[in-house]
């Protein structure tokens, strides 16, 4: 099944992502499908977005397989801490993943709360 994303859908979701970046202080937000195709982005980047999407989808899928292997449904937190940038991964729907880059001085807990509320807004636009 191929997916056609309407113009107004892109505008609405990217506005939500942009607002989220401004409120939370995150650096960059990317929504990708589980096949590794970038769908929506906001924020500034100096890397290849397609590669980030491909690697993130693979990373998420691998972690999920590890969870299945040890009889867990999934891990509730998928997060990498760096010296200059952190990465947080969150499942938005069964087929969609959100990746947020943020500076280490930002609170992970607060960011996760914001991502949770964001998730509902995004689902209301794109559906399940």
């Amino acid at each position: 099944m191929n997916t056609v994303i309407r113009e107004d859908t892109v505008t609405k979701v990217e506005k939500i992502l942009q607002d989220f970046i401004e409120e939370s202080g995150a650096t960059y937000a990317l929504i990708t499908d589980m096949g590794g195709n970038p769908l929506f982005t906001a924020g500034e980047e100096d890397f290849d977005v397609d590669t980030l999407a491909a690697l993130s989808a693979a990373n998420y899928a691998t972690t999920k397989e590890i969870a299945n292997l040890i009889k867990e449904d999934n891990f509730s937190l998928l997060f990498h801490r760096g010296n200059n940038e952190n990465v947080h991964f969150a499942k938005i729907t069964q087929d969609i993943l959100m990746i947020v880059l943020f500076k280490p001085f930002l609170s992970l807990g607060l960011l996760r709360l914001k991502i949770n509320s964001l998730q509902q807004k995004i689902v209301s636009i794109i559906g399940n």
């Binding site: 099944m1 191929n2 997916t3 056609v4 994303i5 309407r6 113009e7 859908t9 892109v10 505008t11 499908d33 096949g35 590794g36 195709n37 970038p38 769908l39």
Partner: peptide, 15 residues
């Protein structure tokens, strides 16, 4: 699953 984005006018295809 190909992605067609009508705003950015892009088609993404996985081979």
């Amino acid at each position: 699953m190909a992605i067609v984005n009508l705003k950015d006018k892009t088609i993404q295809i996985k081979i």
